[in-house]
């Protein structure tokens, strides 16, 4: 059995690499973008908030799976063609940005108005206020919700299966179908557990660091 594991492990690990690559790039792009969307959602300029709300509504109101299929199989019909990997990233970033945007909106709204006024009488500019005072407070507020989404993302990344990307789940499924054994799928489960465990630990550490102030 050990020998069999050694045999399929390289395939699983290369699948894990794909999963992690989707995971990291989605996070790296959609957290800052989500913060921007959240900031946009609290502005008083109605057409902007209307547009952003519409975007968030579409992204959160339809399945990510549909969005993936739409980008990869649907858009080519109107001559917008993505590579598999790009299609996956595009759909994931668009989707997760909406979720993060909504979380950040809540975060921005919970910073008291007095903090903005306090910054204003000290003559800080709007962007200085956002960077030095608002973002750090918002970050602390949204951390638990962001954490949930991060864990979800680890698992959601397996949806790229449907557009034929070689991720962890596909690697396991291929091995199981070929060798008629449960072992690859169990290993896949164990690797996902390990990934989510690492995320949980990292999030806890960040939360702990944020707890120096209240």
């Amino acid at each position: 059995m050990i020998q069999y594991i050694q045999e399929i492990l390289p395939a699983l690990l290369s699948g894990t690499k794909m999963t992690l690559s989707i995971f990291f790039w989605t996070l790296i792009c959609s957290i800052p973008l989500g913060a921007l969307i959240g900031l946009g959602l609290i502005q008083r300029f109605k057409p902007l908030t209307w547009l952003l709300n519409f975007y968030v509504w579409i992204m959160r109101g339809t399945p990510l799976l549909l969005q993936l299929i739409f980008v990869f199989y649907g858009l080519p019909i109107i001559h917008i063609v993505f590579q598999r990997y790009d299609a996956a990233l595009f759909a994931f970033i668009l989707n997760y940005t909406a979720y993060f945007g909504e979380i950040f909106r809540g975060g921005f709204q919970s910073v008291p108005k007095g903090q903005f006024e306090s910054a204003k009488v000290l003559r800080l500019t709007y962007s200085q206020t956002i960077r030095k005072i608002v973002i750090p407070q918002v970050f602390k507020i949204v951390l638990p919700s962001i954490g949930n989404e991060v864990i979800n993302l680890v698992k959601d990344s397996s949806l790229v299966y449907v557009i034929g990307l070689g991720d962890l789940l596909r690697a396991g499924n291929v091995a199981t179908a070929r060798d008629v054994t449960l072992l690859p799928l169990i290993l896949v489960g164990i690797i996902y557990l390990a990934l989510t465990a690492v995320c949980t630990i990292v999030l806890k550490l960040i939360e702990k660091r944020e707890n120096v102030w209240r």
Partner: peptide
Amino acid sequence: VVFQDYQLFPNLTVLGNITLAPTMV
């Protein structure tokens, strides 16, 4: 201004609260 509820920045230390505006503005 000193506000009724002070409105110190909770994410900054005492020194950070004081030095932020003079250094940035």
